[in-house]
Structure formats: structure tokens, C-alpha cells
């Protein structure tokens, strides 16, 4: 088993929490995990990415080679496209469609979504809307994680375990909120799957 995942978003959107949850879940499954992350300058509202690698064998490189990522998980639609050079020919893009507009020349949203939908394997969901609907507005990143979970080859219960260990200190309420968000993401993913006739 080997999964190479690119996580992307804008500094402050919580991609490192997604990485941590997947990482903890993989460790629970006794897998090797290597995860490179971004600290420093670009965390101030800039584009951020993380390379997350999971395998049942030792992992050599901290970076995923170009064209070999199985999944791009993005909490922001434009950022999903920034890392396409890493995506393998059979790879999946799982992204939120909620734009994070903090630059004057942010592209037209319809054009952007058309571009995203022009790729072969895409799941694009409005994570912020879903998070608001289930009253967990701060957990839209975990909604996206839920949407990506069917592609991770890691059982949902392990991801829930990851959420428990990551947010353990913050109390039951926060844990449940994130688990709700995770499951909502799973449902959205299934819906999208059916709608697009895949």
C-alpha cells in the first residue's frame, strides 16, 4: 500500500490539521508516514502545501516526485490547480469550491470551476456551505478530508481516531464537531460520485 497526497490551501486554512489527522490514522494502522509541511513566510495568507506520504514500506523522499501524487486534497479551488504537475495520470482532485479571495486579481469563479471540472477525476464540493449547514462552520477543512476519505485506503474509524488524538485536549465538543464534519464530507463525496455518474 502506498498513497502520495498533496494537501493545498492558503496559510491559516487548516491543511496541517488535515495532514495530522491522516498521519495519526495511518500510524494507528501501523503504516509509515512522512509529511513535509510549510512553516514561515507563506503562512501569512500565501499559498501553502504539504506532501503527505503513506506506505507499508519505509519511505525515502520527503517530497513526492512530479507526476506521482495519487490525490490532491485542496481546501481552496485555485490552490487545487497549482500542484497539478505533481498529479499522476490516474490521480484524483478533491477540492472545496469556496474561494479564498485575498488578492485583487483572483480569477473569475465560474471559469475557475469550469477549469477544475475539465479534469478527469474530480470531486468538488462547497465545503463552507456544508460546514455551515451542519453547524460546524470552522471545520470545513475536515469536510474536505471526509470527501477525500474514500480514496485514502484508510478506514473512517481510523480517521475518527486521528481526530480524537489531535483534538483530544480540546474536549468532547470539538471532537464531535469534527467527526460530524468528517461524516458530512463522506456523504457529499458519495453524492458527487452519483451525480457525476462515475
Amino acid at each position: 500500500m502506498k498513497k502520495d497526497i498533496i494537501l493545498s490551501g492558503v496559510g491559516g486554512q487548516g491543511i496541517l490539521s488535515i495532514a495530522a489527522i491522516i498521519g495519526l490514522a495511518a500510524i494507528e494502522k501501523k503504516l509509515f508516514v512522512k509529511q513535509s509541511e510549510v512553516h514561515g513566510m507563506s503562512q501569512r495568507g500565501g499559498a501553502v502545501q504539504s506532501h503527505l506520504r503513506i506506505s507499508d514500506k519505509e519511505i525515502a523522499s520527503d517530497l513526492i516526485p512530479y507526476g506521482e501524487s495519487d490525490i490532491i486534497i485542496s481546501v481552496e479551488p485555485m490552490e487545487a490547480l497549482r500542484y497539478l504537475p505533481f498529479l499522476s495520470s490516474h490521480g484524483w482532485i478533491i477540492t472545496s469550491t469556496t474561494p479564498f479571495v485575498n488578492i485583487p486579481n483572483y480569477p473569475d469563479l465560474d471559469a475557475l470551476l469550469n477549469q477544475i471540472n475539465s479534469y478527469k477525476n474530480v470531486i468538488a464540493i462547497n465545503a463552507d456551505e456544508v460546514a455551515r449547514r451542519i453547524k460546524t462552520p470552522k471545520a470545513s477543512n475536515v469536510v474536505i478530508l471526509g470527501a477525500a476519505s474514500p480514496f485514502l485506503e484508510i478506514p473512517l474509524e481510523n480517521l475518527e481516531g486521528g481526530i480524537r488524538s489531535l483534538f483530544g485536549r480540546k474536549g468532547e465538543e470539538i471532537i464531535n464537531m469534527n467527526i460530524t464534519a468528517l461524516n458530512a464530507g463522506v456523504e457529499e463525496s458519495k453524492k458527487y460520485y452519483q451525480l457525476s455518474g462515475l
Binding site: R44, G46, A47, Y66, L81, R82, L84, P85, I103
Partner: peptide
Amino acid sequence: AKALGLPTKEGLPIPEIVVNRPPELC
């Protein structure tokens, strides 16, 4: 890999619609 003369993969190009997102003051 390139320096070793091994085959490499390329992924897809970044479409033009993607613009830079530099860091900014909060």
C-alpha cells in the same frame, strides 16, 4: 532522476487561470 538519466513523469501543466498568491499582512 533526470541527472541519473532515469525516466520521469510530468503531471499536468498549471493552467493559466492560476495566479500568484504572495503572503500578505493580516
